Amino acid sequence: MQHVRSHKTMLTSALLAILLFVSLMLPASAATWNLTGDTNVHDPSYIVENGTGTHWVFSTGEGLQVLWSSDGKHYNRSLPIFTSRPSWWSQYVPNHTGLDVWAPDIFYYNGTYYLYYSISTFGSKVSAIGLVTTNSISGGVWTDRGMVISSNNSTNYNAIDANIVQGHNGKLYMAFGSWSNGIYVTEISTSTMKPTGNSYRVATKSGGIEGPSLVYNSNTGYYYLFVSIGTCCAGLNSTYKIAVGRSTSPFGPFVDKNGVDMKNGGGTVIDSGNSAWVGPGGQDVYGTNVIARHAYSVAENGAPKLLISDLYWDSSGWPYFN
């Protein structure tokens, strides 16, 4: 019996060693974080504040909604960014009323936090992207920097859903746009943080495309364009999915895993939801290792909720998460 027990002990130790080795070699299942607290959001933009380590999430809603967390897991709702309308809103989007603000993007650059956002009305190209700044998110004091780019019925693009990235050359680029007019990219000034020249279309998709997130991964040498395809904002009837393509240039062409140009409808789907979460989209990639997005909770009858996951890259240089 002693011999048998010794044999079992050796076998157990060997199995444990194998499991430990595997756990060290593989990522933690590209884990989706276990979030608690107030996590109701649409179109989240996520950042960790320098110095304080506080996790912040900005999202579509009245006055532009704000969540914060000390540990990245349990979230609380803070005061909105806007309590009154900047005067220029009515000039560029006359039909916009109230304080409904869409699709923010938070970007840190040279000691300042730049918060881009959109004002528009559903189904309209009369839109504008605005900008507010602060040196301390925790301080809660934001300065209005006015209109960044606007659109109307005669422009090629729709000026919503801004996202900023710093490229391999130190230059800054903004992706924006939606639906039949597609996604555009333009270079922005490092001093004004507003466009310096032309905007170039990089993606289209019949049936809906919006919410671009432009990411540069220095490890792979590619720019990645994450987009939301399908339709949003219909609860459990939403058809949003997250798709991606990549390019060696911020201006494209962005192609998917099959080599199809996103300007011609390409895009590799990396999240289409599951039995618990419907319509994932409105995504934001923080750095190159965290992705935030919203999805509709089946358990809560279609409530829009914040999801955050670790983002990983396979051996071929493509992103994935659980």
Rank of each mutant, 00 (worst) to 15 (best):
P94H: 04
S118H: 04
V285M: 06
S84V: 00
Q91S: 10
F58Q: 09
S297D: 11
G63S: 07
A159H: 02
P94I: 09
A103I: 10
L172C: 05
D271I: 12
G98P: 13
T54M: 14
S238I: 03
M10K: 14
V101S: 14
S120P: 02
Y116V: 05
S199E: 12
V290R: 15
N181E: 11
G177H: 08
D100A: 15
H74L: 11
G197A: 07
I188N: 01
G211A: 13
G111K: 07
P212N: 06
S154H: 07
P212W: 10
L311F: 11
Y113K: 12
Y157V: 02
N274A: 04
T97P: 12
G266V: 01
T220C: 02
C233M: 03
K125P: 00
S118P: 00
I160A: 02
L236V: 01
V278T: 08
A243I: 01
T83V: 00
A31K: 10
A292H: 14
T288A: 11
A175S: 14
L115H: 07
G267Y: 06
G267M: 04
V141F: 03
T32L: 15
L236D: 02
P44F: 09
S124Y: 01
G252T: 04
E300R: 08
L99A: 03
H168S: 03
R5S: 12
N289R: 08
S6D: 06
W102G: 08
T36K: 05
L79W: 12
N158D: 01
A276P: 11
V278F: 08
P250S: 07
Y173E: 04
A30N: 14
L26I: 12
W142E: 04
W318Y: 15
E49F: 06
N34H: 11
G266F: 03
V269N: 04
N322A: 11
G282P: 06
S150L: 03
V132K: 02
L214F: 08
S118M: 06
W313Y: 09
S151I: 00
P280M: 01
W179N: 13
S127G: 02
T12W: 10
W68Y: 05
V132E: 02
N289P: 02
S118N: 05
T112N: 13
G287S: 07
S191Y: 09
K257P: 10
A292G: 13
L11R: 15
N289K: 04
C232R: 03
F321A: 15
